[in-house]
């Protein structure tokens, strides 16, 4: 590993978020409930992969960073590495993350920092991801008995990972904490309109999950990385 991991902590943090979520969404390929939705999820995954490539290239060699780092060197949020679960879990994860990413990128695009260019381009993609997640949340929450129950359980299960979204990121010219009130307002509004109950569990203190930015990850992440990195590690330098 030749890359100095401290040089561009912010690029790594945002790049890893995009890379890991992209991979998770890609896992739906061949498994989504309907073909149209499979394409929608794959499109979102590809948008995120494009962002990840730009961001990781800012921090070093994109392939080395994606395929040759150990778990502890990844700086993504624990939220994005959570397994797909059922479709409701995937949508809840996307709602929480895309709302956050949209607010963050809009703020970065308005500034003149190193991420302004990427953010200006990506913010349009992310607006679509957010719209997609919000519409599905409304339909599943305010849908059938079963979809409502599953959506509520997904929203509850992932809630503890949302406190981490607002932790400071080294080298980022926006303080994520400043986005929290708007995020909470927006997510609360969507959940209410979806006739879902806004989770009451703690997002801070002892109940708060999340030290992904410090390299601590949850159990399923190692397995995901093994799958993602296996080919490159088995055949170093292979190309199509």
């Amino acid at each position: 590993m030749t890359v100095d991991l401290t040089t561009n902590a912010a690029a790594l943090a945002l790049g890893d978020d995009a890379l890991v979520l992209s991979h998770r969404l890609g896992e739906w390929a061949g498994h989504a409930p309907v073909l149209e939705e499979e394409v929608a999820l794959a499109n979102i995954a590809l948008d995120l992969l494009g962002q990840a490539r730009v961001l990781l290239s800012m921090a070093g060699d994109e392939d080395e960073l994606a395929y040759l780092r150990e778990e502890r060197a990844f700086r993504n949020l624990q939220l994005v590495e959570q397994p797909n679960g059922d479709f409701a879990h995937t949508i809840a994860r996307q709602l929480y993350f895309s709302t956050h990413q949209h607010l963050l990128y809009a703020r970065l695009a308005a500034g003149d920092g190193p991420f302004a260019g990427l953010a200006a381009k990506a913010v349009k993609e992310v607006a679509y991801h957010r719209d997609h997640a919000e519409r599905w949340t409304l339909r599943l929450g305010d849908g059938t008995e079963v979809s409502r129950r599953r959506m509520q359980s997904a929203v509850d299960a992932l809630w503890r990972f949302t406190g981490e979204l607002f932790q400071p990121v080294d080298g980022l010219d926006v303080d994520p904490a400043a986005l929290e009130a708007t995020w909470l307002e927006s997510v609360t509004d969507v959940l209410r309109r979806a006739t879902l109950t806004v989770p009451e569990g703690r997002r801070t203190g002892a109940w708060r999950a999340g030290a992904g930015r410090q390299g601590l990850h949850t159990e399923s992440f190692g397995r995901m990385l093994a799958e993602m990195q296996h080919l490159h590690r088995s055949h170093p330098g292979a190309s199509w």
Binding site: V39, A40, N43, D131, R135, R139
Partner: peptide, 8 residues
């Protein structure tokens, strides 16, 4: 959703 799927 038909519109959005069509876009995709």
């Amino acid at each position: 959703f038909a519109l959005r799927n069509a876009r995709d």
